[in-house]
């Protein structure tokens, strides 16, 4: 695996290498060199299979991390290729010409994170969420609870209790509150 990554280094700028297991490495690349790198990994270094694509929302850094997991049948090893892209107007080159099935992942990422892949077939068709009108739900600033409260009415008969109040009720119901401070202007 190390040898493969070293060969990749001659082609592109590898920013970071992390070994999770001997057969699972992660590397971080620059976004504009991604397609070239994946093409070289597939055609020359024998990472023939794209296992999946995924995204992570780094809200605080205003970045998405895209991960392309590719597999080498000879090494029986996975390589995760990470790139960071800007979170606002997030967009990435499509790789459906390298792996045809990538269009489906890209369509999913478009729907869940709002990451665009210009040129990817049917990228803006709903993947699983027909008539979704909110922001893409996997973005971390999507307020799941608020959406849930708004969309699903509470079943009748639901009631809850606060642990602190419950214990007060049971153990010290008459304990005094702090007195109001008497001020001279009152």
């Amino acid at each position: 695996m190390k040898e493969k990554i070293d060969r990749l280094r001659k082609m592109v700028n590898v920013l970071q290498v992390v070994e999770k297991h001997p057969d699972l490495y992660f590397i971080t690349l620059e976004g504009n060199q991604l397609v070239m790198a994946l093409g070289y990994l597939k055609n020359t270094l024998n990472f023939k299979h794209l296992a999946f694509m995924q995204a992570v929302d780094y809200l605080e850094d205003n970045k998405f991390m895209l991960t392309y997991m590719v597999y080498n049948y000879e090494l029986k090893a996975n390589l995760g290729v990470n790139v960071f892209i800007d979170r606002e107007e997030s967009s990435m080159f499509s790789i459906h010409r390298l792996w045809e099935h990538a269009w489906q992942y890209q369509r999913e990422l478009y729907e869940m994170f709002g990451i665009d892949f210009p040129g990817s077939p049917r990228v803006d068709e709903p993947f699983i969420m027909e008539s979704w009108e909110e922001m893409p739900p996997m973005r971390r600033d999507f307020d799941t609870l608020a959406y849930s409260q708004k969309t699903y009415f509470p079943r009748p008969g639901r009631e809850t209790n606060d642990p602190k109040e419950q214990m007060k009720k049971a153990k010290y119901p008459n304990y005094p509150d702090s007195p109001k401070i008497r001020r001279d202007d009152e």
């Binding site: 799941t144 609870l145 849930s148 409260q149 809850t160 606060d162 419950q166």
Partner: peptide, 14 residues
Amino acid sequence: CEEICQNAAIDLVP
């Protein structure tokens, strides 16, 4: 559990 639930699915009951 109630506090973290993103769907308000959990109530605390005696």
